[in-house]
Amino acid sequence: HNGKLCKLKGIAPLQLGKCNITGWLLGNPECDSLLPARSWSYIVETPNSENGACYPGDLIDYEELREQLSSVSSLERFEIFPKESSWPNHTFNGVTVSCSHRGKSSFYRNLLWLTKKGDSYPKLTNSYVNNKGKEVLVLWGVHHPSSSDEQQSLYSNGNAYVSVASSNYNRRFTPEIAARPKVRDQHGRMNYYWTLLEPGDTIIFEATGNLIAPWYAFALSRGFESGIITSNASMHECNTKCQTPQGAINSNLPFQNIHPVTIGECPKYVRSTKLRMVTGLRNIPSIQYRGLFGAIAGFIEGGWTGMIDGWYGYHHQNEQGSGYAADQKSTQNAINGITNKVNSVIEKMNTQFTAVGKEFNNLEKRMENLNKKVDDGFLDIWTYNAELLVLLENERTLDFHDLNVKNLYEKVKSQLKNNAKEIGNGCFEFYHKCDNECMESVRNGTYDYPKYSEESKLNREKIDGVKLESMGVYQILAIYSTVASSLVLLVSLGAISFWMCSNGSLQCRICI
């Protein structure tokens, strides 16, 4: 991952900044910058967002509201009850120091605090018919004063009620008058409520006091790749198909172990950190130390980045220098085999997901714990399936590479015959000098055995068991695999060879 928040398929997220979902939807004055928000790819909250409900109280069923919003990608904020005409018999300019803005008392931008007009609070009834052709999110509140005197001074009615009804919602609220500790300079409380109004449905408000009335509502448009994440990451000019709280993932790998919460087309989250597919040879310690064997393909974004291909070729060293050249036929066979294998694994496992966190309130801790156990169970199954699949494929890959290298080895052996000696570690020792032209003939299969047989015969008789390297004779190393990324691999195959001279070296080696 890149540690950044990015656009998702070209669409920017909605960053709530210092506000949370509650503050944004109710219209906390400190969240005025969010009022123009219309569309987004996903919503970003920060872990310690401080601006929620400015007048103390709870947004009821907040967790369910977050779940609903996680599939919303755009909205239209509109005046559901026009301020100047909807409440002619009531005062609608209630403000509070708890919702101060720029040093002055204020109130929510989407709600109206209705109080008595003169000395009376006549029963009010108002309704709205949803003609938007889509779901409408309606929010309101109920004020709970701290004393009967406060109730009387604001609403005149000691036994007030609030009723809200639609086809799918029907509740009646009565204020709970009680002494409470002071929070944000208030002994009173406000509880906030919401409902989704279906197209064509009607919502009716009736009250004799204590109503925090809707002013603006939201017509919602769903987008199934949307979601809500909690993150401290910063926004950058970048684009992605998959976003996590820790950063964007741009990967076609089937798995990731970065974060379980994802938005967009994302690899499946697994616990494993070692889900690797081999593309090189079986481990040979001396070669492995030099980083030549054991190439791997990573299938977990965050564990290993991208696929690494092994390729086969020849390396030689003689009086004229040293050089490398790919054996294109065996390399292409290996590439085709690995590509098919990788595609097979991805096809089997690479279903892209959006995974969002589930919200539970403080009273639902047991449910949250149960949900976590269920999620953990599914996660263990996914991890096991992934590891088992790759384990089985790896064994076949190792066998496949062994065969490829063996074929190259036999190709060289059949040409050199007794003009060189096998020394048991995949290397041959020449009994004759071999210049670049000679080396090329070994690589392309045109090695002239009779041409060098007499010199080889004489050297075999002279050496008589002495280690060949100390006599200045020449080696050919018969097994060799270097490691390159897919891009470098293609470039390498396009070149005939490249040279690395070893000044004054008397050794001649050709490596497979």
Rank of each mutant, 00 (worst) to 15 (best):
M235W: 03
E237F: 11
E237N: 14
P245W: 07
A248H: 03
S251K: 09
F255T: 08
Q256Y: 07
Q256S: 09
N257M: 06
I258N: 13
E265N: 13
E265M: 12
S272V: 04
R282V: 03
N283Y: 06
N283K: 11
P285K: 13
P285D: 08
L292W: 01
F293M: 13
A295M: 15
E301M: 12
E301D: 01
M307K: 02
I308D: 01
G313V: 00
H316C: 15
H316N: 00
N318H: 08
E319S: 15
A325N: 02
A326R: 06
A326M: 06
K329S: 12
K329C: 05
K329P: 09
S330K: 14
T331A: 04
S344T: 15
I346P: 08
T351Q: 13
L363P: 03
K365L: 14
R366A: 08
M367N: 05
N369W: 07
N369Q: 05
K373W: 06
D375I: 06
G377H: 06
L379N: 07
I381S: 02
W382R: 08
N385R: 03
L388G: 01
L388W: 13
L388E: 08
L389Y: 03
E393P: 04
E395H: 11
T397V: 09
F400C: 08
F400Y: 12
N407P: 01
K411I: 11
L416R: 03
A420M: 07
K421G: 08
K421Y: 11
F428H: 11
F430I: 01
Y431C: 08
E437P: 12
M439Y: 02
V442A: 06
T446N: 06
T446Y: 06
Y452I: 12
S453G: 11
N459Y: 02
R460P: 06
D464E: 07
K467P: 10
E469N: 13
G472D: 13
Y474K: 01
I479D: 09
A484E: 01
S485P: 05
S486K: 08
L487N: 06
L487I: 15
S492A: 14
S497N: 10
W499K: 07
M500Q: 06
C501M: 11
C511H: 13
